[in-house]
Design a protein around this nucleic acid. Structure first.
Lengths: 74, 74
DNA sequence: ATGTGACTTGGAGTCCGTG
DNA sequence: ACACGGACTCCAAGTCACA
């Protein structure tokens, strides 16, 4: 509930983008590996989506990171 | 997808229960504070629910913990 | 005070496109 | 390669009765 513009989601989005770019990967490539939609990765990075832990876990795994790395600062 | 009996969800459930019991609180009391249903807390602790980060964040806040504490071991 | 199955519904997540 | 939107599908979210 109250999904849009939530500071927690914003922070996670920034964390994801930072880690993804640092690994030199595109949203599309990551989405393909994680078996999720490319537009959904975009939504998460922009902080307008409220993903489940399973989705977050899949993304973290494909980035050789863990979920804790994605939620730092929340 | 593949929600039931997922090892990630099981671990999070165990983490939650450990932290909650350590703070001497009941599922009901926690659910009341976090403004979520008592049975939903039960489902998360049993690892059969796949909660969103916003739900996880609310629970962590009420336990004076952060989301990272709930996802350790995943 | 907690586990559990069944239920409804809003939103998570997908798929098509565009600039 | 990414932001953004519309129109979907399907599961997370939230509730209930009962054990």
């Amino acid at each position: 509930m109250t999904s849009s513009l939530d500071p927690t989601l914003q922070t996670i989005g920034k964390n994801l983008r930072r880690i993804r770019v640092a690994s030199g990967r595109s949203q599309e490539g990551l989405a393909l590996d994680a078996a999720i939609d490319r537009t959904y990765v975009s939504q998460i990075e922009r902080g307008i989506a409220n993903p489940s832990i399973l989705v977050l876990k899949k993304i973290a795994s494909c980035l050789d990171a863990n979920v804790s790395d994605l939620v730092v600062g929340t």
